[in-house]
């Protein structure tokens, strides 16, 4: 099973690739809405991409109030 750090790294890689932002500009505690400049619909597209990559289901109510990559990665890790 992969570590939480590996999960976090993959989340950051995927977010950077999806929204065409240099990976090195993203860090774990960034607010991804602000950092990626995305709205709620784009956040759902990121959620879809993450679910497919990690082969999990992440109900969006678990995302309520989550806006930083670290917490997002924790939520994902809990379902791996």
């Amino acid at each position: 099973m992969q570590t939480q750090q590996q999960t976090l790294d993959e989340v950051l890689e995927l977010a950077a690739a999806q929204f065409k932002i240099p990976r090195e500009t993203l860090s774990a505690d960034d607010d991804f809405f602000k950092k990626l400049g995305i709205d709620s619909l784009q956040a759902l597209s990121l959620l879809t991409r993450l679910e497919q990559h990690f082969k999990i289901e992440l109900p969006d109510y678990e995302m309520q109030g989550v806006s930083d990559f670290r917490t997002l990665a924790e939520r994902i890790q809990s379902r791996l």
Partner: peptide, 8 residues
């Protein structure tokens, strides 16, 4: 004005 109006 929430960033997440589509989240229930």
């Amino acid at each position: 004005t929430s960033a997440q109006p589509y989240l229930p």
